[in-house]
Write a protein that binds this DNA or RNA. Structure first.
Length: 923
RNA sequence: GCUCGGAUGGUGGAAUCGGUAGACACGAGGGACUUAAAAUCCCUUGGCCAUUACGGCUGUGUGGGUUCAAGUCCCACUCCGAGUACCA
């Protein structure tokens, strides 16, 4: 009986299904371990070889933990809402749900073939009303909450209402979009609509007028993390800035906690750093600049308070509220023209042009320290959304201000000794201050850092500003003008103010529409739904939630997926608590991984969950890149020349399907059949073979470098695929998918099989293992145990190969040894492990076995190697019996046949004999 | 520009604390078995020079440094990748 992987894999997959082998349930007598993969978006293309990389890695860890006695939760589900299904629906008229369900079925089929230990009874789908009921529920809770900066947590909005009616905003610690000030009397005198407007300033899920990334092509707004370099991440369409009323989540309120708690989680430094940059904490000062001839003052934010004496002008963002305040009638026309120009530039154009532009407002401000009058400009290099949307410009020490000053011929005053600002600004925060003293403030002679501190003190004392910490993190824009997403549990009252549905009305199900396009009046697709009204007859919200809504808390739902009365029950939450190991790609660093942390913290504030962070440890699997193959056609012919000979001809490289190439050798027959125009192709071969060229490129259909895991499973089996994906290199490294070498792994499994069976005959016997065999297997136990803990699976696979080769060479037939080997292999290649386990006469499944422990006694070396150096020069190595003492080793080193060659009869000044640790012997 | 990674044979990659660099695998070359092929097994395989030798030299992107000893630590640089971008 040969190693028949097809039969073995089919049978065991069936067995696991029939016996619910991977069902997880709460068991307080055992320690839990929660392993999670980022759930996939079920795209029409099906699973590709990049997907399973992370899934296999986490599957190995899950199985390993289980063999070590942990109660493992390892679920899987689908991030089922998304733009591609909807785009497809627009094109074909097919309901996105239909394609989604179809794609999910295909994903499931593919996943099943790889032999994962997922508990499918806990599957979630974000588009399932039973699931999105809880997405809507959390949204309602956010709508009904505000953030209390004193308690540093979310609180019910009703508390704030009570507070306002008793004290107004006096001593109020609510985090809001704007600083509002009113008394209790004023509050009580407000109409319902006015109060609603005020509360909207504080709600955690709020509707606000913000500049959004509007993608005309997709017909929707996008979050910051969905836009990269001025185009949409999905589709690559241009994105422009637009002021719109949108649902937002007040993520910015959680910025300090999101930053601080990064120190408590076990993620890679690089991804934590990415989040730190995204959150972007910056410590500075806000300062008030009086306006010439006006009561009002300009509030600016700066991190360089020390450069106050170098301020030669001010700049406002085009969208700043200050603009109308400062524009003089003479400048009105010029300013309007500029604002119009800015408005029509897309984000992308702004990024590409990088041209200095701006306009003088006509007004002047007064430097509050020097008393000098300085002009106020308007320019799009100042962003409305950061700080106060207004800056003090210090051209000598800021490159952007410098460029602006040069363009408009504004004065540049250097403030740091020795700084040469004739060509460029001096941006470094170092040096000694100069030109920075008057009767109010003396900074000359101070270091920059001291000067910043002293200026901050001064502005506080002089009441011209305050110390302020700013965050770059913006509130998340939460509306999408699309169909295929969660409906908002929101209706609009007679004042057109949004109101929450009652919890009992959830889930609010997605209605049917006749087309998935915007309506004729430009309303989102839900505008087409008939009877899209709340129970009270009022119209419901027409936008839907974005993709990250459903993915922000899915890890919680897995803990208790069928609970109809809570997102997650107390018992389940307190047992499973948080994800112990989360595996997924780095592309979610500033999206999903921030939103989930925010979402979790919000729920933590209300005690819905008991852990402040959702993902304790995070492993980022690398991207699988494509590896394309090329054939070289001689120009104007149908003749193809092999890679090694192509220099002799004038050739055009053409992508060739990697699936008809093996180890870079082209299958000529398949090539001829591949496309009609190649049917009568001719070839110039080298050594009788056609060798293809190759390149690392993105995976794409047009480059014919997409490899489907099904084909690999079909040809080599799931166990080979699993081992090979791990053997390819470290899980965390990006690497091209390259099937060269998969044979090696397959051969290993065949060799292993051959150790158990010769023909149909079982080869193993109940005999005492030799010391040699014990050493080999215990070396493996130690190596694999250590490797799995460090996710170093590629070296584990190598260790398996070595061990199998050793056992084979020593003709070891002892069952006891193979018993351990099979258990060790079970996480990596579960099907063959089950089969071999069974053949050893075991009646349980290998999943319920015990992970073996190694015994150091068996691992002792009888000899120890030493490196010897004389007089500081490394010379040679000697090997001595273990336990030899220092003096003897030294003598042996001297007596070594090599010693004479180096010593030339002389006595060495210094001998160093080194085993693992450094031993110095001076003679 | 800034931040974070990385650079080791023909290829993917090993090297836990600084201790025989190149594990393991692919590919390549040679051999065995076979009528032949496939499959399988064995040997060689960083480079250079030797090959009477179980031999010598060199070698981890570049240039310095620390150390008895550096792929590993320190300084400077080059190149590549990823993220981010007018954040004051």
């Amino acid at each position: 009986m040969d190693y028949n992987f097809q039969e073995i894999e089919k049978n065991w997959q069936q067995y696991w299904r029939d016996h619910h082998t991977y069902r997880a349930s709460i068991d307080t007598t055992r320690q839990k371990y929660y392993v999670l993969d980022m759930f996939p978006y079920p795209s029409g293309a099906g699973l590709h070889v990049g997907h399973p990389l992370g899934y296999i890695a986490s599957d190995i860890y899950s199985r390993y933990k289980r063999l070590n006695g942990f109660n493992v939760l390892h679920p899987m589900g689908y991030d089922a809402y998304g733009l591609p299904a909807e785009q497809y629906a627009i094109q074909t008229g097919q309901h996105p749900e239909v394609t989604t369900v179809k794609n999910i079925a295909r994903y499931r089929e593919q996943l099943d073939k790889i032999g994962f230990c997922f508990d499918w009874e806990r599957e979630v789908r974000t588009c399932d009303p039973k699931y999105y009921k809880w997405t809507q529920w959390v949204f309602l809770k956010m709508f009904n909450s505000y953030y209390d900066t004193a308690l540093d947590k979310a609180r019910p909005i009703s508390d704030l209402v009570d507070r306002f009616s008793a004290h107004g905003t006096e001593g109020c610690n609510a985090y809001g979009s704007e600083d509002l000030n009113f008394s209790a009397e004023q509050w009580n005198a407000m109409s319902k609509a006015e109060r609603d407007d005020v509360l909207m300033n504080y709600r955690i899920a709020y509707r606000g007028n913000t500049m959004v990334n509007w993608c005309p092509k997709l017909g929707t707004v996008l979050a910051n993390d969905e836009v990269s370099e001025g185009v949409s991440v999905r589709g690559g369409y241009p994105v422009e800035q637009k002021l719109m009323s949108q649902w937002c989540l007040r993520v910015s309120a959680y910025a300090p906690r999101l930053l601080r708690d990064l120190d408590t989680i076990n993620w890679t430094e690089s991804i934590k750093e990415t989040q730190r940059n995204w959150i972007g904490r910056s410590e500075g000062a806000e300062m008030l600049f009086p306006l010439v001839g006006k009561e009002e003052k300009l509030l600016i934010f700066t991190t360089r308070a020390d450069t106050i004496f170098g301020v030669t002008f001010m700049v406002l963002a085009p969208e700043s509220d200050y603009v109308n305040l400062v524009v003089t009638p003479e400048q009105r026309e010029a300013v309007d023209a500029y604002l119009d120009e800015v408005k029509h530039k897309t984000e992308r154009e702004r990024l590409i042009e990088k041209k200095v532009s701006g306009v003088f407002s006509g007004s002047y401000a007064v430097n509050p320290v020097s008393g000098k009058e300085i002009p106020i400009y308007i320019s799009d290099y100042v962003l409305a959304g950061y700080g106060t949307g207004a800056i003090m410009a210090v051209p000598a020490h800021d490159s952007r201000d410098y460029a602006f000053a040069r363009h408009f011929n504004l004065p540049i005053i250097p403030l740091i000794e020795g700084a040469d600002v004739s060509e460029e600004s001096f941006d470094a925060k170092e040096g000694v201050m100069t030109n920075s003293s008057n009767e109010r403030l003396q900074l000359n002679g101070l270091q920059v850092k001291e000067a910043i501190a002293k200026t901050k003190e001064y502005i506080a004392e002089a009441c011209i500003g305050r110390v302020k910490v700013n965050y770059r993190l913006r509130d998340a824009i939460f509306s999408r003008q699309r169909y295929w997403g969660e409906p908002f549990p929101i209706y609009y009252d007679e004042n057109n103010r949004p109101q929450a549905l009652d919890e009992s009305e959830l889930p609010l199900q997605l209605p049917e529409v006749d087309a998935f396009l915007p309506t004729e009046d430009g309303e989102p697709p839900l505008g087409r739904a008939k009877n899209w009204v709340a129970a009270n007859g009022r119209p419901l919200e027409l936008c839907t939630m974005p993709g990250f809504a459903g993915s922000s808390a899915y890890y919680l739902r897995y803990m208790d997926p069928h609970n109809d009365s809570a997102l997650v029950g107390k018992e389940a939450d307190e047992y499973w608590r948080q994800v112990d190991l989360y595996v997924g790609g780095t592309e979610h660093a500033t999206g999903h991984l921030i939103y989930s942390r925010f979402w979790n913290k919000f729920l933590y504030d209300y005690g819905v969950v008991c852990e402040p962070e959702p993902f304790k440890k995070l492993i980022n699997q690398g991207m699988i890149q494509g590896r394309s193959n090329f054939v070289y056609r001689i120009k104007d012919t149908n003749t193809f020349v092999s890679h090694g000979l192509k220099k002799q001809y004038d050739v055009t490289p053409i992508h060739v399907d990697v699936n008809i190439v093996k180890n870079d050798v082209l299958d000529l027959e398949k090539f001829k059949q591949w496309r009609p125009e190649f049917a009568d192709a001719e070839f110039v071969l080298e050594d009788g073979k056609y060798i293809c060229g190759w390149a690392i490129e993105k995976k794409s259909k047009s480059m014919y470098n997409v490899v489907n895991p099904d084909d690999i499973v079909e040809r080599y089996g799931a166990d080979t695929l699993r081992l090979y994906e791990m053997f390819l290199g470290p899980v965390e490294a990006s690497k091209p998918w390259d099937t060269n070498g998969i044979d090696g792994v397959n051969r290993f499994l065949k060799r292993l099989w051959g150790l158990f069976f010769k023909g149909d005959e079982m080869q193993l016997v109940d005999e005492q293992p030799t010391a040699e065999a014990l050493k080999s297997i215990h070396k493996l136990i130690k190596k694999v145990t250590g490797d799995i803990e460090q996710f170093s699976y590629n070296t584990s696979v190598a260790a398996f190969m070595i061990c199998v080769n050793e056992l084979s060479a020593m003709k070891c037939r002892s069952r006891a040894v193979y018993h351990d080997l099979v258990v060790l292999l079970a996480p990596f290649a579960p099907h063959i492990a089950e089969e071999l386990w069974h053949s050893l006469g075991e009646t349980t499944t290998v999943c319920d076995a015990q992970w073996p422990k190694w015994n150091d006694e068996y691992l002792k070396e009888d000899t120890v190697k030493y490196a010897v150096s004389f007089n500081g020069k490394p010379r040679y190595n000697i090997e001595v019996a273990a336990g030899t003492d220092k003096a003897d080793i030294e003598q042996l080193a001297l007596n070594h046949e090599g010693a004479a060659r180096w010593l030339d009869g002389k006595t060495p000044r210094k001998i160093i004999v080194v085993p693992g640790k450094l031993v110095n012997i001076v003679v």
